[in-house]
């Protein structure tokens, strides 16, 4: 679902949301729109390309450099195109203790890419992430806006299959209109099971979920 960035326009819900967002900040503080509008743009256009930066700057409007500064500061803005599914495997301390590295290596092997890369078919982008705030259910990964927790390697396999089989997500309206984490939980098929079924990667010498 690569999107042509040479001629950008907002979808109707995004355009409406932009107007609504404007009303939330005082007239002289419209600069504060940069964050939410960038998020929105990323959802609309897939990634924050230089053209998207120009587009957002003109939409708010603020000088381009201010949008660049913000877009470079936060890692949640993707400055490179990413795959349809953005896998972010937490490898901060809790997840590491619970085998995040094993999960990462497993996915790398399975998809044939290294972290930071995208599969040639554009389906998956794999990244390591710092603490995603889900230590109690380590190891975990975030797929697009969704958490998958207590991962076992078989859960991962199953999840990747499910994702691959899931239809395009671009027309999900709720997704456009809300920032990450703020939207209604968008369920994938069998999400309920995939979510909690696993019990962690079994590290050598440890019982599953052993604490």
């Amino acid at each position: 679902m690569s999107i042509d960035h040479s001629n950008l326009t907002w979808s109707k819900p995004a355009a409406d949301r932009l107007e609504w967002l404007r009303t939330r900040y005082p007239a002289d503080k419209q600069r504060a729109l940069i964050l939410p509008v960038l998020h929105m743009a990323q959802r609309e256009f897939g990634w924050v390309s230089p053209s998207v930066i120009d587009f957002v700057a003109a939409a708010i409007p603020v000088p381009t450099i201010q949008v660049e500064e913000v877009a470079c500061f936060y890692t949640m803005y993707n400055r490179k195109p990413i795959g349809r599914w953005h896998l972010q495997v937490c490898h901060n301390i809790s997840c590491s203790l619970m085998g995040a590295e094993i999960v990462l290596e497993h996915i790398e092997g399975k998809l044939g890419i290294k972290r930071g890369e995208t599969t040639p078919d554009g389906e998956f982008t794999l990244m390591g992430a710092e603490c995603l705030g889900s230590c109690g259910t380590a190891p975990m990964m975030q797929v697009n806006d969704h958490y998958y927790e207590n991962l076992g390697l078989s859960d991962v396999d199953e999840l990747l299959e499910t994702l691959r089989a899931t239809a395009d997500i671009a027309d999900d309206e709720a997704n456009v209109a809300h920032g990450p984490g703020s939207g209604p939980s968008r369920k994938l098929p069998q999400d309920g099971e995939a979510h909690t079924a696993g019990s962690g990667v079994v590290l050598p010498g440890h019982a599953a979920g052993g604490h």
Binding site: D54, P63, T64, I65, E68, E69, C72, F73
Partner: peptide, 14 residues
């Protein structure tokens, strides 16, 4: 642009 020890001054695109 960028952050922490990678931060540098950059010319605005264009």
């Amino acid at each position: 642009v960028n952050r922490g020890d990678r931060a540098v001054v950059e010319l605005a695109q264009g």
